[in-house]
Amino acid sequence: MTQQAAKEVRKRTLFKKVLHILLKIIAAIVIAILLFVASVYTFNKVSTYSEQKRTEPYGQLVSVDGKQMNVSIQGKGEETVVLLPGYGTAAPALDFKPLITELSPFYKVVVVEPFGYGLSDQTEKERSTANIVSEIHEALQSLHIDRYILMGHSISGIYSLDYVNQYPDEVRAFIGLDSSVPTLKEEQTIDSSVTTPIKWFRNLGFHRIQLKLSTDPYEGLPYDQETKEQIDIFIRKNMYNNTQLNEAEHMNTNFTEAEKLSFPQNLPVLLFVQANNAATDQWVPEHEKQIKDSTHAEMVLMDAGHYLYRSHPQEISEKIKEFTTELK
Rank of each mutant, 00 (worst) to 15 (best):
P182W: 07
A5W: 05
F234T: 10
S128E: 00
V64D: 00
A173Y: 01
Y87D: 07
P222L: 09
L204I: 15
L271R: 01
D65G: 14
I26P: 06
G86W: 06
V46K: 09
D178A: 10
L308E: 03
T215H: 13
F15C: 05
V9H: 08
S47Q: 15
K319I: 13
K319Q: 13
L271A: 07
H20R: 14
F115H: 00
L83S: 06
K53Q: 14
Q230R: 04
A304E: 01
T195R: 07
T256I: 11
S311A: 14
Q60V: 08
W200M: 11
F272P: 03
V284Q: 00
I209R: 04
L19S: 05
Y223V: 11
N131D: 07
T89E: 11
M299K: 08
G66R: 02
E226S: 12
V71P: 02
Y307W: 13
L61Y: 12
I100E: 04
A297F: 05
E318H: 11
V273T: 13
K199L: 10
P268E: 04
G116F: 03
L83A: 02
N252T: 15
D281F: 02
Y41W: 12
Q225V: 11
G77S: 02
T2P: 10
Y307S: 14
P264V: 06
G75H: 07
P114G: 03
V81Y: 02
Y107P: 02
I190Q: 00
F115M: 06
T80R: 03
H137R: 01
L177V: 09
V300A: 05
S154Q: 02
L213T: 14
L19F: 13
E318A: 15
K199I: 15
N131L: 09
